[in-house]
Structure formats: C-alpha cells, structure tokens
Simulated scan of single mutants.
Amino acid sequence: MNRLGFIFSTLLLLVALGASTLFVVDQRQFGVVYALGQIKEVITEPGLNFKLPPPFQNVSYIDKRLLTLDSTDNEPVLTAEKQRVVIDWYVRWRISEPTEYIRNVGTNEAAGASQLNRVVRNAFQEEINKRTVKELLSLKREALMDDVKNEVLTQVRGAKPWGIDVVDVRITRVDYVDAITESVYRRMEAERKRVANELRSTGAAEGEKIRADADRQREVTVANAYRDAQKIKGEGDAEAARTYTEAFGRDPQFAQFYRSLDAYKASFATKGDVMVLDSSSSDFFKTMRGGASANTSK
C-alpha cells in the first residue's frame, strides 16, 4: 500500500514538473522567458513552448496588440499668442521589441503608457507654443500632429530605445480654459442681445411706418366715401326738391297743406312740447281751423 502511494505521488510530481516546463503563447502576446532574473528568450510566435521548471526559468507575457493611450490631464497650454487652451489627444502605439522594452521601460504595458504620456504631453506643449489658436483649428492641425509624432518617435528611439512603435497621434479637442470660455460666451450673449435689440427697434419703426400708412389710407378712404355720400345725398335732395316743386306747382293748396303738416310735426315732436298762441288770430293753426270748418259744413 505504501509502495502504491509512493508511485502515485511520484507520478503526480512528474506530471506537475512536466506541466511547469510547458507554456502557451497567445497570438496577442509576446512570451518572455527569464532565467534567474535575466531575459533568456522572447517567443514571438503563438504555440506550445518548453522551458526549465521554476525557479530556473519563468515566463511572463506582454501585449503585442495595438494599444491606445488617451490624455488624462487638463492642464492648459499656451499658444503663440499666449492664449491658454486645453487639448484632448490620444496615441496609438504597440510594443515592437520586447527585450528593449523590458530593459528600458518596464515589464508591463502600464509602465510604457505612463512614460509615453509624459513624452507626448511635453511634445504637444512645445509644438502648440509655436502655433496660434487659428492654426490649431485649421488644416494646419494635421502638420502639428505629424510634428508631435516625429518628436515622440525621436524620443523613444534615442540612445536607449524603448522598443515601441508610435503609429498615430491625434488631437480630439481644442478648447479655451473655463474662464476664457465663460468670457467668450458672455461676449457672444451681449452681441446677440445687441443684434436682437437692433432688430426689435427696426421692427418697431417699420411697424409704426406701416400703421401710419394704414391710418392715412383709412382717412383717405373715409374722406372719399364721405365725399361720395354727400354728393349722392345732394343729388338726391336736388331730385327730391325738383319733384316737390313740380308736384306743388300743380296744386298750391296741397303744397301749403303739406308744409303745414311738416311744421306741426316739428313743433309737436314730443308730448312735453308746449306752445302758447292765439288760435283765433295766428296763421299757424289756419290749416286746422280750415279743416274743422270743412268738417262742420259737411
């Protein structure tokens, strides 16, 4: 029984020892084999590989894919005309030489990103100091990004190469600092208010002009209508007078009777009208007296 356990334990130990000598490198990674803390070999191709068991040899992995580094600080940068602007940028980069990268930068991607962030930020500051805000917002921004990329490549390929390749450098945003932005917004608001007030004043003046013209046209129309009405009324009165004259000329007594009736209507328009006359001697009631005598005789 003890012998069987010993054999089983030995087999397990051999399996564990054999497993510690095998490692798999993914197609997205570099496999770095260390021998007593020194780089022994860098595996660049994916597949199954062999090494000595720990502690004689160990393996670590570094990402070989294209990585993205985004800006993390909002420190303002001075332009050529001493304007304070804030920029956002990103860098696309990859590890191309794992041995140089580990020796001069670090053993993981975070170490390279940290140092690359500092180099890119300094390069942007230097290049933006040479350019105006207008140039940053125009097509010349492409030249700025190319210059920054070349400067960063010069830094990482210097006396102690970093073992990385910078593929692209891009600016995603250029903006004034908050204080300047607020001032610009206030000026824009004041300008818009001035234009709005000017438009309102112009509109009010135009409205007054239109109303004055409409009032003038109304007065002219009313005056013309009144003139035409008076003309028609005068023609009607003339025609009526002619008709009355013609009718009264045929029968003078009827004319006198009709006019007396009109006088009576005008004199006794309301029940409260009172006249004090001598009915026996006044000619005003002559028609009435004549009508009464006529009725008596009948």
Rank of each mutant, 00 (worst) to 15 (best):
Q115Y: 01
A80V: 00
L261Y: 15
L144F: 08
M145N: 06
E142P: 04
A196I: 01
Y176D: 04
K271V: 08
P53Y: 10
K231F: 14
P53R: 08
L277F: 13
L277D: 06
A269H: 15
Y185V: 08
E246L: 12
L52Q: 14
Q125H: 05
R121A: 07
A80K: 15
Q38I: 00
R211L: 15
N129F: 11
P252E: 08
T181V: 06
V174R: 11
T296D: 09
R3D: 07
Q29M: 12
G234K: 10
V222H: 09
L36Y: 13
E208L: 12
R121P: 14
I95N: 01
E182M: 04
K298F: 11
L139R: 08
M1A: 05
R103E: 01
F248N: 10
V86F: 13
V119D: 01
I180W: 05
Q27G: 05
T245Q: 10
S9W: 03
K233V: 03
F257V: 13
K209W: 14
I62D: 00
R192K: 13
N74A: 02
D70T: 00
T245H: 15
R250M: 07
S9D: 00
A190T: 01
F254L: 13
E127S: 02
T68R: 02
G203C: 08
A80E: 03
Q57T: 00
S138V: 01
F30E: 02
V25S: 06
N295Q: 08
V156K: 14
Q256K: 10
N117Q: 04
K286Y: 12
Q230L: 09
D63H: 02
L153N: 14
Q57P: 11
